[in-house]
Nucleic acid binder design. Sequence first.
DNA 1: ATACATACCGACCATGCGGTCTGTAAATAC
DNA 2: GTATTTACAGACCGCATGGTCGGTATGTAT
Lengths: 194, 194
Amino acid sequence: MRDAELTRQKILTVSADEIHKNGFTATSLSCILARCDISKGALYHHFTNKLELGYAVFEEVYAPAFIALWQPPVEAEDPIAGLCDFFSAMSKNMSCDEIVCGCPLNNLCQEMSAIDEGFRIRILAMQQQLNLLIATNLARVSHQLQPGLDFSQVAYFIVATFHGSSSLSKSSLNKELFDKVIKELCRYIRQLKR
Amino acid sequence: MRDAELTRQKILTVSADEIHKNGFTATSLSCILARCDISKGALYHHFTNKLELGYAVFEEVYAPAFIALWQPPVEAEDPIAGLCDFFSAMSKNMSCDEIVCGCPLNNLCQEMSAIDEGFRIRILAMQQQLNLLIATNLARVSHQLQPGLDFSQVAYFIVATFHGSSSLSKSSLNKELFDKVIKELCRYIRQLKR
DNA sequence: ATACATACCGACCATGCGGTCTGTAAATAC
DNA sequence: GTATTTACAGACCGCATGGTCGGTATGTAT
């Protein structure tokens, strides 16, 4: 065969990139076809429709990448330091375009949650998974933290602020606001200690 | 005349509502026309195109409402208490739909900043205006606050978290996450004191 | 060699969109 | 009373989109 799996992966990769940059609705299939250099027939052989393609991108590209991104800092010996280093590294290493582009999960959440149930439940599941990941690892070192903290609440707070910061940056087209918010976020996180 | 100004205002009001609910791109003119019970000719008599209608909605509906919303809590005698009460009142009084729908400014920021310069500069201006409003009022009571705070940074942090919290809520379709993040945000804000 | 399934091609279609244009009725100017 | 401008009405257009469908080439099984 003419490596069907490779074709499928190429479609997924390109689609993930396009959806990340333009959002799901604004991403046109013809654009994906052009970049993949395949025909419409090829795409509809592998995916039943645009929505199913979107779900596949979410499950096979975004979700694994998302977990792979957040797991290391949170599961580090010291999750407080891990998270601060994680965010600081973003400020330092990510390009302006990357930051302004934002997190695919948050972008899709804003765009698709109210429109499509399929996306909504997938996004919700990821957010809950991430929240659990952060909260349990904070609980793990609770003896080093302030008493009386609601770890789930703190975890949601951190993620909300992070996503809000990249949202803020979108209108200014530079990292400055992102850096500011991240700095303050790190200050907040460190303050959780003792 | 057949009250042209009234027609214009009706178009603006309905458009503001539709754009708030569906976003700018997904809002169709035909839907606006139907709700206003006017013809396409009427709309294009008052506005040159969809984009200009969007700008008008932003400047004449969203921007004034936005300032009217944020100014009182921030300019209160005690802005710390003002902001906490402001956010708590949102948790208490706003309907689930309102929260999930989110702030028009943040929604447009996410959707339109990367697509259209006209929207981007207007959104940016609003964000800077809000930041200045918060930062200067924090500076006003700086003697009551922790030393060494960067007020602009704190102001951006607060707004980022607030917008992030409503973003989070969109996937769960309820206020729970919003309430959690707002609670933690108030805790953070109160911690600025002393 | 034959048969069949898989992988892909690309013309075609219906739909909905923003936008235009011609026409008309109401208000105002003179 | 007439002329002109203002405030609409609504048919129409071009375009891009997601999706369909009949056909074709490439592989595998027998």
